[in-house]
Design a protein around this nucleic acid. Structure first.
Length: 589
RNA sequence: GCUUUCGUAGUUCAAUGGACAGAACCGCGGUUUCCUAAACCGCUAAUCCCGGUUCGAGUCCGGGCGAAGGCGCCA
């Protein structure tokens, strides 16, 4: 028997469009427009007849009926597999039979089978630039989004077959070093006392004082710029200090990354590009893309609707490079050395102008030089705001540090574990507390549409009920418990075919499982992991309802076997979904 | 001044131009001799305003109002 298509929504879209055009005689203006249907209408619905009927002045119901009649002679649309109905003003509703549900579940029985269904990006090289904190400053809640969103996006791209290069583009070559070096010289800071891994708070304090000085005095600002220029031109003592500052910073960042299980393939930082910015300046000037303006080097977009009077500064008047300089050099490196087909920048929406201008500049530059232009994408996200509705910043007040947020989440989770499961050993309780606490925080961010700002709230970040990671983890833990019991009673041996699904809770759960590929394609289309969160929450909800209503391990062997298989598939998809979001799966909690 | 994003129940959030706008939290009520009650079941409540396009608009376009951002040497 032929394997059913991985994503039925996609498949039906293609098939119905094809049958409409080739069998029914509809022209190129017809497309089936298949989408997931509300359950009251069936499993999938095709909306294309409404638009097409209007277009060719035929009643849409007639169009829909012609399509249904043509489909009925196709084997895959036979009554044994699905029911077709014309409804409303010309919708075509498709409802899968229990046999069709069972066949799909049989074909996609484990994570490996699911992965083979998703190969759109096989062999593509995708560079994802995310997290990218600034050296010498602690990460706070404002840094959460890039970190968890970036990690989830990497996992999703990898699932579809891409070779993903996770690049942490740390801000280690910018203005803050001028300010820091000046302040260190002024205060005579002793670095021997700042051991790697513990000195970041002291550095941050130093920086805070430095910023204050620079804001208050033009003289101090000039000195800081001079310090930076001296560092960037390779002054040895300053480079030595710079290295120490970075060692302290990187060690602190790594603790956070370890805690929430995020890893990088490359941690190059802006400084990595310090010797290649020269080539950028040279080429951009040579091809007339950049020009000197008031001492600085700038790219103008004089015919551009938005940027006609907003130039892109790529080198400061004092010769120092800036954010734009290193970003340009980084694109070149990622294209030439890493072979990037696509580059994703997971950076907040306030930098939209910067990235638009960066991309416009790169397009001109690569066109002139004939360099291979990768796809450039700014995966922007809204700002994390405080109670006042404004962005949480390092400078104003004391934002909540990531370390502090994660610690608090783990502590609260531990309290609950100890209350619910006092019989577990200490090691298990620790593991569960960590997975639940970190998971709740990650999910609190991931479950929201990235394009909106959101108010930081302890209540959301530390919620363990409702639409949260622990809800998903709990459902999965129950599925593991069922599997353990089935194994201990030797119930799970030799069952790989899928018996037809029964109506009611079983069917609702099975139907939801089949939506997984469609949701993944939606997530991939514009890299919005919150759609996967919503889906997994609904899936876990369907399972919980099923679990409350149906005894899985039941006296009746056929029932037990059918329900065990359904649980197995749910366990696979829920587990894979959690993995794609970067959330830890638990087998008990 | 120019410009970008956003505006949905009391609150925090969903909704590839489709049929009756979904959840969660909060509140109230119910469920456990049975595979984990971190669960399940039930009740109430919303598309900022005015136009336009469309068979169909929370979604697209125009104009208001409101919020947050960006705009030559910060990243």
């Amino acid at each position: 028997m032929e394997r059913p298509p991985f994503d039925l929504q996609r498949h039906y879209e293609a098939r119905l469009t094809q049958v409409g055009q080739e069998v029914c005689g509809f022209d190129q203006n017809f497309s089936a427009q298949v989408q997931l249907a509300p359950i009251r209408f069936g499993d999938y619905q095709a909306n294309g007849a409404l638009a097409y009927g209007r277009f060719c002045q035929i009643h849409p119901r007639k169009i829909a009926q012609r399509l249904v009649d043509a489909l009925r002679s196709e084997e895959e649309f036979s009554p044994a597999l699905c029911d077709l109905q014309v409804a409303g003003g010309g919708f075509v509703n498709i409802s899968l039979s229990s046999l069709a549900l069972a066949r799909w579940l049989a074909a996609y029985g484990d994570a490996h089978a699911l992965r083979t269904g998703a190969n759109e990006l096989d062999g593509r090289i995708h560079v994802v630039d995310f997290s990218s904190p600034n050296s010498a400053k602690q990460m706070h809640v404002g840094h959460l989004r890039s970190l968890v969103l970036g990690d989830a996006i990497c996992r999703i791209l990898e699932f579809f077959g891409a070779k993903v290069i996770r690049d942490n583009h740390i801000g280690d070559w910018g203005t803050q070093f001028g300010i820091l070096l000046r302040q260190i010289r002024l205060e005579g800071t002793d670095f021997e006392q700042l051991a790697p891994g513990s000195g970041l708070e002291a550095l941050e304090e130093l920086y805070r004082r430095g910023v204050q000085a620079v804001e208050e005095s033009e003289e101090a600002a000039r000195e800081a710029r001079e310090e930076l220029a001296a560092l960037q031109s390779g002054d040895a003592p300053r480079l030595e200090l710079w290295k120490r500052i970075n060692a302290i910073s990187y060690a602190a960042f790594q603790k956070i990354y370890d805690l929430c299980s995020v890893h990088f393939d490359l941690v190059l930082g802006e400084s990595f590009y310090r010797d290649s910015v020269g080539r950028v300046f040279e080429e951009l000037e040579k091809y007339g893309i950049a020009e000197k303006n008031g001492g600085a080097l700038a790219v103008f977009f004089r015919n551009h609707g938005q940027f006609y009077e907003q130039p892109f500064l790529i080198r400061k008047a004092d010769g120092a490079s800036n954010y734009a300089s290193t970003d340009l050099a980084a694109v070149l490196y990622r294209s030439e050395q890493l072979g990037a087909d696509e580059i994703f920048y997971v950076v907040d929406a306030r930098q939209q102008d910067h990235f638009q201008q960066l991309f416009l500049t790169v397009e001109r530059w690569f066109e002139k030089t004939g360099y291979r232009l990768p796809g450039l994408h700014h995966i922007s996200f809204g700002t994390v705001c405080g109670e006042d509705g404004k962005a949480i910043r390092t400078r104003s007040g004391e934002p909540i540090r990531l370390q502090q947020l994660f610690s608090e989440a783990i502590a609260r989770a531990r309290t609950i574990v100890e209350e619910k499961n006092p019989e577990l050993d200490r090691e298990s309780r620790d593991r569960i507390a960590r997975a639940v606490g970190i998971g709740a925080v990650k999910y609190g961010d991931l479950s929201q549409n990235r394009s909106n700002n959101y108010l930081f709230s302890w209540d959301r970040m530390l919620a363990f009920n409702g639409n949260t990671a622990p809800y998903l983890q709990y459902a999965l833990a129950r599925l593991h418990a069922i599997a353990r019991r089935a194994a201990s009673e030797n119930l799970s041996d030799g069952v790989d075919a899928m018996p037809p699904i029964q109506e009611g809770e079983e069917r609702s759960l099975a139907r939801k499982l089949l939506h997984f590929p469609t949701v993944l394609h939606q997530v991939l289309a514009d890299l919005r992991p919150h759609l996967l969160c919503t889906y997994l929450y609904e899936l876990a909800g369907e399972f919980s309802t099923f679990y409350a209503a149906c005894r899985v391990i039941d006296g009746d062997r056929a029932t037990t076997r059918r329900r065990l298989l359904l649980c197995d598939r749910t366990k696979t998809i829920l587990g894979l979904g959690l993995e794609l979001l970067g959330l830890e799966a638990l087998d008990q909690m």
